[in-house]
Nucleic acid binder design. Structure first.
Lengths: 327, 327
DNA sequence: CCTGGTTTTGCAAGCGTGTGCAATCATGGT
DNA sequence: ACCATGATTGCACACGCTTGCAAAACCAGG
């Protein structure tokens, strides 16, 4: 049924090893013979079985990609760029979706059973033990969007402090004084870091938060929390959100309440997703550079896959201020 | 280095076959022995190598997922649901991203080299020959979002005609008479079908298109085309777009020109992406049910994987009208 | 205690490929 | 014509697992 290297060998009148070598770059084989074998292979429709190839211990070409809520604008953007770049390297992304709050360990374990060459982890929580288990099973990992505490793996992460500093500066420059914060519900790395970063940066400007609320990174939650904040006693004159989606919700809330943006209320987000630039929002935000993040992550991962040892590296990606109309 | 079935067998004092059977559901093995082997396996950290398992000709558990621009809101939503449901079936999605305009054949071919059990194709163009090649290589496919002309594979597709009929009815009921259309650039299945569907449905209402333009399914292109249309001689009093993203762009264009929506201009989209419900747009659209589409696609695929023959089936998913404020 | 039937078990033969090693071949210098 | 050298080639084993087959172990009935 299936065409194997044996079939090609028989048809081309060579040994099976020759067929294998004809498909192995750099193998020792006469150029004309290689051409002949490949011609015969094409004719028969032969393609090397990657399962068998992976079995011998060589690389499988598979990269596990652990990602959270794909439909989330930032995540889908990230996944888009990441999967393209993985393909550009001649590798294949094996998708490992994890729901928020779900443990990534069992899923990742199972993915490792496919002998993936490495893993990019952009969701869930990772500890040193898990990182080491992956390495010991031959799959180096790189963590994106957070920094591994124990230092068990390379990581790439936006410089959240720097981003928040830019927002705080602009808040101070435009004379805002009653700042509100809408963050995420759980204690994820970037949620915590962005919150602390904002607090510190505000303090440096002689400002402080007058209100703090928690959403779930969705537009709806941003709107609900902003509505509550704007109709409560805190009455901020600026709202900083943990991501753009919630900021978009906050702008909608202000619009519904008849509060002018940026006149009576400034709104800032984080990430610079495409929707931030859509006209009715024109959201001032901080760009979290997806392309550079992905490039660095794959560079680090490729190094490890190539066998380079050395202590884990952390790369901070510098964000960029995107001043639009909302602040 | 790596823990293999041999190691477990030696430690547990049984044969390698026994270990294999302990991990094969339904295999003939004494329950207590199975428990013991699994305990030893856990202790040693043994996990079956799926590459080796796939090599013996059995299932690999891999499903190729061919998808286009992942960052596109509808596609990312679809991918989100699809990947979750694939996992729920105990299978794994192998991502095959293809850029718009790129041939899917080489990429799909390469994915087949991983001995995937099947493929869900939601991007690019597929012909009968390609479908048959996949089947003959043991990977049945299901095509989503279009119907295969030659009938070479199962397909699941939204009933675009029905959706456009709903929009046309509402246009007639609200007295719109000068209808404009903004479609996609290329002759993709759904682009053509939505256009023809709209034309037919309008005709049934005694209406006709006064303007036709082409975007690229992005918000920006929707805005650009709508601006041109609204400042040109055609002056429509309603714009129907091939998807929600372009409709969102059209609403922004109207806002920029000071044209009231829906007062002076009605706007309708297609798909009902989350952003359609965001407050400044409140886009009237047609829901393209993602969950049902995915369910049907996987049901059909599972049938084929189970070996069921029979002529290809086409399933049309009924859309639902979502009346909001823009029409 | 023997017999026929049903599990359970281990052996060994694959699955399709990569690659070390030794044998073969061609080449060129003397 | 002969030998040293280096490029090609084929053999055979390894990779880790599944599974058909036959032997072994078990069970119940007589």
């Amino acid at each position: 049924m299936r065409v194997t290297a044996d079939d090609v060998a028989a048809r081309a009148g060579v040994s099976r090893s020759a067929v294998s070598r004809a498909f192995t770059p750099g193998a020792s084989i006469q150029p004309e013979k290689r051409a002949h074998i490949r011609a015969v292979a094409d004719e028969l429709g032969y393609r090397p079985n990657l399962m068998a190839r992976g079995l011998t211990g060589g690389a499988t070409g598979l990269i596990a990609v652990v990602v959270g809520t794909i439909s989330n604008p930032y995540e889908s953007w990230f996944l888009d760029v990441l999967s393209q770049q993985i393909r550009a390297l001649g590798l294949w992304p094996l998708l490992v979706p994890v729901s928020p709050g779900q443990e990534i360990e069992p899923a990742l374990d199972h993915a490792l059973d496919y002998q993936v060459d490495g893993a990019v982890i952009a969701a869930g929580s990772v500890n040193r033990k898990l990182a080491e288990r992956c390495s010991s099973r031959g799959a180096p990992i790189v963590v994106v969007g957070r920094v591994l505490e124990g230092g068990g793996a390379d990581s790439v992460c936006c410089d959240n402090h720097a981003g928040m500093a830019m927002i705080a500066e602009r808040l101070a420059a435009t004379g805002r004084s009653r700042i509100g914060w809408i963050g995420g519900r759980d204690e994820t790395f970037s949620n915590v870091e962005r919150f602390k970063g904002l607090e510190a940066a505000l303090a440096a400007q002689g400002l402080a938060l007058v209100a703090t609320r928690r959403g779930d990174y969705s537009v709806d939650s941003g709107m609900a929390q902003a509505l509550a904040m704007l109709t409560g006693p805190e009455r901020p004159d600026a709202i900083v959100c943990g991501n753009d989606a919630m900021a978009i919700g906050a702008i909608s809330a202000a619009r519904r309440l008849g509060i002018a943006v940026p006149g009576a209320l400034a709104v800032a987000g984080f990430d610079d997703i495409p929707a931030a630039a859509w006209e009715p929002y024109s959201l001032t935000t901080v760009a979290n550079p997806v392309a550079r993040t992905v490039e660095e992550a794959l560079r680090l991962l490729a190094r490890r896959i190539a066998g380079e040892a050395g202590s884990p590296e952390t790369i901070r990606i510098a964000p960029a201020f995107r001043q639009r109309a909302s602040l």
